[in-house]
Amino acid sequence: MNIRRVTNEERLSTAFPLQAYAFEASPKRPEQAEDFRRVLPYAAANRTLVVTEGDETVAVASAIPMRQNLRGVVLPMAGVAGVTTHPLARRHGHVRALLHQLLDEMRDEGHPVSALYPFRASFYERFGYVGLPRARTVTLSPAGLAPLLRADLPGELTWERTGTGYAAHRAFTERCLAERHGFAILPETRAVWLRDEDDRWLVTARRDGATVGVLTYRIDDHDGELVGGPLLAADPYARALLLQFLARHVDQVARVSLQVAADELPELWLTDLDVHVEARIAGPGSPAPMARLLSLDALAGLPAGPARVRVELTGDRWLAGTHLLDGATGHLELVEDVSSAAAPTATLTAAGLSALAYGVLDPAEVDVRGLGRVPADAAAELRRLFPRRLPYLHAEF
């Protein structure tokens, strides 16, 4: 098996055609292939590996150098994307070999965490990934937001195209990255797609000169639907200001749909609000994201409760050995010499440890799911080390 990294220009004849077959309508007309060159600059920062047989590309996988907040610490993250195989070369182990090498390289270059959107979650769980919450889609009538039209809210709004408002939008996502657990953003080379396409409206909430909320959207037709991208707000006042803006479309659109984080409770936004909230998970077209630790370096220094536990890591290419996790100082310390350490022991897979670090599973759930063996005494310590938290990945890639 020949695996090699391709240059950005080489993507046009290797990675892009195979990825287009897997993730887009096909076959493409010859003139549609020109779209490949148009998107080429946005892939410049990616690391793309291909498997070749002779002159033919039979498998491809890419990693996007991103950043993610893990319990308040922003870390370099490998966003895995565009993983696909030629239809005549599937189930030959190509993807496994590609992912091993791709994650080896990203880990060695300092990316201690990774995330992806899977075609099948169980496949990537074997690579140590664990599921994260999927963003919710909220659908409602703008008429239901009418009470907000009478509210005197602090702040003001600006309304423009994404092409002109991109810089403020990007700056606010940087703020969210610093403040929200699980939040991830694309590199600037990829994120500028929003600016260059300029095909959405952007409404921005500001207070005292600072951006406190953003929402991108498009309207599909008169009496149709206002389709909003992620609603990002620093606080309830900022969220209400953005919803007040949507209420002004009552005589223009029949429906409003928005993406919100899993910790949002739209049914409590207003009294008597008729709202539908959905998080549909269905592969391969509607997956929930997954994430994993690639290095224990990701844990060092994280906020932690006062507890100590020994973990034996098993069955993984990147996380192995026995380590003492100590949160006595309020920040997690990793001790490799555990020979004399008195602490309860848990045996964890990479997915099990990742589930605890990202806060998506209780230690007992890790045990039930078969992602480790967690005795009751170790579970109590792990709960104090890794309190449950709800991550919000945000980025789609």
Rank of each mutant, 00 (worst) to 15 (best):
N2D: 13
N2W: 08
R5Y: 07
R5L: 09
T7L: 11
L12Q: 13
S13P: 06
A15S: 15
L18R: 12
A20V: 12
A22L: 04
E31C: 12
E31G: 11
V39A: 12
L40H: 11
A44G: 03
V51L: 05
V51T: 13
T52K: 08
V58Q: 04
P65I: 01
L70R: 01
G72I: 01
M77H: 03
V83R: 00
T84Q: 03
P87Q: 05
R90Y: 00
G93A: 10
Q101R: 15
L102Q: 02
D104M: 05
M106P: 07
V113S: 08
E125P: 02
R126H: 14
Y129A: 07
V130Y: 04
G131L: 09
L132S: 12
P133Y: 12
V138G: 07
G144M: 00
A146L: 08
P147F: 08
G155I: 02
E160K: 14
Y166L: 14
R170S: 07
E174N: 11
E174Q: 14
F183L: 11
E188K: 08
D198S: 12
R200Y: 11
V203N: 06
D220Q: 06
E225N: 15
L226W: 03
G229F: 01
H249Y: 12
V250H: 04
V256H: 01
V256Y: 00
V260E: 11
V260G: 14
E267C: 04
W269F: 03
L270P: 01
D272V: 00
P284V: 01
G285H: 13
S286F: 13
A288Q: 14
P289H: 10
M290F: 13
L299W: 05
P306L: 02
A307K: 02
R308H: 03
V309R: 05
R310P: 02
L313V: 10
L313K: 01
G315E: 12
R317F: 14
W318K: 13
A320P: 06
D326C: 04
G327Y: 00
T329D: 08
E336P: 03
P344H: 10
S354I: 05
A355Q: 04
A357F: 02
D362F: 03
P363D: 01
G370W: 00
G370S: 00
A379H: 09
E381S: 09
E381V: 03
L385K: 04
R388M: 15
L393R: 10
L393K: 09
E396M: 11
